[in-house]
Design a protein around this nucleic acid. Structure first.
Lengths: 262, 262
DNA sequence: AACAGTGGTTCTATTATAGAACCAGAAAGA
DNA sequence: TCTTTCTGGTTCTATAATAGAACCACTGTT
């Protein structure tokens, strides 16, 4: 059993994204298809605790600094984040490109940590970016190791959303097969137009898929011809990555995803 | 009017701090003096949306990665954060110490941004740290410019909590007077045992106090004798800091504080 | 074997919520 | 200038969601 009121409050919070970082009251109510009185009460409550900020100049609502506070608690607690950093740095140094750590969260992928290369387009601002599992090497490599039933549902979701990167269901399943066969995947221009990436999957001690690690950079540098070099670096560090994941608390919400299995 | 249920849910979230990053269900219920069934329902709801993570190994609840996601939205939106960074870096370079940007939020001070010096003890992990306004130069310098009624209440709060750094009410008001007279303040070992800081206040266009900017470092380096040098750097950059604050959205929740005035 | 913990579940009296109808003010259009 | 149509915010009560006692099943301790 979950609380309906709290669910609504969280859906209010979830409405604030990079694309829509501020909302007017009635605007947000329409977006959520809720009565504006209700949204008002929720926003007021969130504001009182600093989760939301009511900008007096624009009269709009925005996310509050309480969230910065809490995210700091998470990051501090996530010891794995600091354990994994030196390994990611090593890969970045070896390849000369940025390294992205992606985590499976419910039925989406989230960029949890990014280590930038020296010569890089800014990337780090994408930390926390969440997207469906059918987009990009980092995500596809995760999808490949999920139960077929879930793969089916996620691909269908993509098709019904007219996702650009799914040609046909058959072709997509072939990609997933290929990934499982070779253990890595390369894509260009899926998550970001000018960015290409090569990714390998990461598992827990029970061989459950947890996330992925990727080398990413501008298309013209990270070409399919270069993948060999980068793959070697990824595979060289695979063991240390796995042992870190095994040792430390890891907030992958696989549970919810698996509960959807019939 | 605010929502009681959502307030409870937020108080659940607020229970997760650096000191207490994970809670058992009944443990948390006791802490909040709530029925464990209620806490269970709230946690389940928060978990469903990724705000909370139920660690299957320890059976304890922890904050979820959704918060990292949201904090990234806040930071992206906070254009002032990037505008202020070069100025803070300049001060860090000039003084050789870390620079801390503190914001007034309701009746507390929050470290919103920290630029580290090269030669520094790690400090940045304190981003988001929240503490009462009677502790530390960065906070006292804010308190000095608040209405007397609020100063009174905050000091009384401190006294009833047996705060270490308040000798007597009279002595404390003298400190606040001194701050207003000289426009800066120096403390050593208040917020952190081995750290000293010198701070100046920051105001909006209506001369309302918004926050403060501080130079901070280990006591043995940031001595009272060194303050002149650092003060010059702070004051040199004061105008650029003010103009940035004037230009950009700034989430200081003064409103709630001011609403408490009789 | 008894006991005291734990996380999780069920059920209904009670309480908090949803949402229509209502402000007052701002902006847009005629 | 006078409507009209927005906006954020408020009030009130039928009704829907919540609180919390009593209850599992399980684990660890004595």
């Amino acid at each position: 059993m979950t609380s309906k009121t709290v669910s609504k409050a969280l859906s209010v919070l979830n409405s604030f994204t990079s694309e829509n970082p501020s909302w007017g009251l009635r605007e947000l109510a329409r977006h959520l298809d809720m009565n504006h009185t209700v949204v008002y009460r929720l926003l007021s409550t969130l504001e009182e605790e600093g989760y939301v900020f009511h900008n007096p100049d624009t009269q709009k609502y925005e996310l509050g600094i309480k969230l910065i506070e809490l995210s700091n608690v998470v990051e501090e607690h996530l010891k794995f984040a600091e354990l994994i950093e030196p390994i990611m740095k090593k890969i970045a140094l070896q390849t000369g490109e940025s390294v992205v750590f992606t985590i499976l969260d419910n039925e989406e992928g989230v960029f949890l940590k990014i280590v930038e290369s020296e010569q890089q387009v800014r990337f780090a601002e994408s930390v926390g970016k969440r997207s469906p599992l059918y987009i990009g090497a980092s995500h596809k490599v995760i999808l490949a190791y999920l139960p077929e039933e879930i793969q089916n549902r996620i691909i269908d979701d993509g098709l019904s959303n007219n996702a650009q990167h799914i040609e046909s269901k058959e072709a997509f399943f072939e990609v997933l097969e290929k990934i499982k066969h070779q253990g890595w995947y390369y894509t260009a221009g899926e998550t970001f137009n000018d960015v290409a990436a090569i990714s390998i999957p990461l598992f827990d001690h029970k061989k459950n898929i947890l996330g992925s690690i990727s080398v990413a950079g501008p298309k013209y540098r990270v070409t399919i011809e270069e993948t060999d070099r980068m793959l070697i670096s990824l595979q060289e560090n695979y063991q240390s990555l796995s042992s870190v994941l095994r040792k430390s608390f890891f907030p992958s919400r696989r549970k919810f995803l698996m509960n959807t299995l019939s």
